[in-house]
Amino acid sequence: MTSVDLSRTVLRAVRRAVDDGELRVEPPERVVVTTPGGGGWGDYATNVALQLARPAGQPALRVAEILRPRLIGLDGIDDVLVTGPGFLNIRLRDTVSVDLVHDILRRGTRYGFVDVPQGSQGFRSGPPASPAPLPLPLHSPGDVRSLVVMDVVARLLRAQGVVVRTRCLDSSVAPSLADQWGVRVDGYGAAGSDTPDLGALSSPPCSLQPRPCSGDPLFLGIDAGRWALLHPAPHDAVRLTGDHLVQRESNPLFRVRYAHARARAVLRNGSELGLAPRPGATGVADAALLAVLADHPRVLRRAAETRAPDRLTRHLVAVADAALPFLVTVLPRGDEKPSAAHRARLALAEAVGAVLAGGLSLLGIDAPDHL
């Protein structure tokens, strides 16, 4: 179950409570579920009871207690605990994590992608109205950051099934600049008057501090240079420093790539021990890791919808930070005998590698197996 699936499940519980007369309130259009904060419990949490308390004319704790029994046992929900002023904390069954890992391994690096063409009319849950959807035009100025941001936004949109056509508005920009950065540009110069501008895109120019580099982030290399341009939000300045190259935990890009390399390493080591990945109960506390993996499709969709590659970079850092402590628990230690739990952990490690590799690929950044 993904966070999107769980959100719909909670919303159905709210609607049933309204239909049964236990809550006199207009159900919200959507319910937000997140990973539990400090003092939380389980795999996910939602503040829907606090959201409904005032319009329902009841204390949030009472609203939460009305919803709790309607959630337990539904769609893979194992238990629900009310905490604080009325937060609903939700624990999923092990079978849910098994299904999630199965799904990631089946889709591989395309986990979270949508294969149905959607065209320029936006995101739809059903099939497109036309077999040949209109392309969504994305326009960019000629500076390096704008070109790279446009390229990744186009990749994110294509991953969601949207047909995209990119254009650099500065016809004086040499195509070799785009080629150097691995940027796909479909056209140069101003678009024709008959082309609707449905997706104009512009990024702030680079703000160089403190290392002088004449405005060219290429001194970092393509991978670190792309990360430096993409990790800040589009409205934030870019910091071009050697910090993006250091091989230690203070560097977010290093943590992401190191987590991918570690996931690949444990798979190689597991193979040497005769262990093959097999989804199942891992026997370790990995709820935070499962939560961020399950959230990957939603992050890709939101990053595409909001034209914000930085959402994906932050998400990959979250995946890496949740994965690194888990990856040291995957293989047997000492005299410990290989078991089904170790095979399940290997499957989860393989899922981690697939998500990180797929995300880095969308950013145009290499995901090395050795680091």
Rank of each mutant, 00 (worst) to 15 (best):
A64D: 01
G119H: 02
L61R: 06
P127Y: 07
I104D: 01
F113Y: 11
V98R: 06
T95R: 13
V63F: 03
L52T: 02
R124S: 11
R62Q: 12
R54I: 14
T109M: 11
V96S: 08
F123D: 10
I66H: 03
I77N: 01
L92S: 06
A56P: 04
T83Q: 04
S130Y: 15
V114P: 01
V116P: 02
I90E: 02
Q58W: 06
S97A: 15
V96Y: 03
G122T: 11
F113T: 13
A132R: 12
S97K: 05
E65Q: 09
D79K: 09
S130V: 15
L71E: 00
D103F: 07
V101H: 03
D103K: 09
F87L: 03
L74G: 07
R62E: 14
I77L: 10
R62G: 09
L67G: 03
L100D: 01
L74T: 09
R68L: 09
V82W: 01
A64P: 02
G86C: 07
V116F: 04
Q118F: 04
V101N: 01
R107T: 11
R93S: 13
Q121I: 15
Q58E: 09
R54G: 12
L88M: 07
T95S: 14
A129K: 09
N89L: 05
G76Q: 06
P127D: 12
P55V: 10
P127Q: 12
G57L: 08
G73Q: 11
R106P: 10
G57H: 06
D103N: 13
D78H: 08
I77Q: 00
V82G: 04
Q118P: 05
D75Q: 08
S97R: 07
I77P: 00
A53P: 04
G76I: 05
L100A: 03
R54K: 11
L67I: 06
V116S: 07
L81V: 15
R107N: 12
L100S: 02
D99Q: 08
T83F: 02
V114C: 07
H102G: 14
D99R: 08
S120F: 12
I72N: 08
V98A: 08
D94A: 11
L105C: 08
P69F: 06
E65K: 05
D79E: 13
R124P: 08
Q58R: 10
D79G: 15
L105H: 08
G57F: 03
S130R: 15
V114I: 14
T83P: 00
P117T: 07
L74S: 12
P85F: 03
R124C: 12
G84A: 12
P131D: 11
G108K: 04
A53I: 04
I90V: 10
P128G: 15
D79Y: 10
R124G: 09
A56I: 05
G112W: 00
Q58Y: 06
V80F: 06
G76A: 09
D94S: 12
P133Q: 08
I90H: 00
A132E: 15
G86R: 01
P85M: 09
R70T: 07
S120L: 07
P85W: 04
R54W: 11
A60N: 02
G122M: 13
H102T: 14
S125M: 12
P69T: 09
T95K: 10
L61G: 05
P128N: 14
A132Y: 10
L61W: 03
G57W: 04
L100F: 06
V80N: 01
V116H: 03
P55A: 12
V98T: 11
F113R: 04
D79Q: 13
D94K: 10
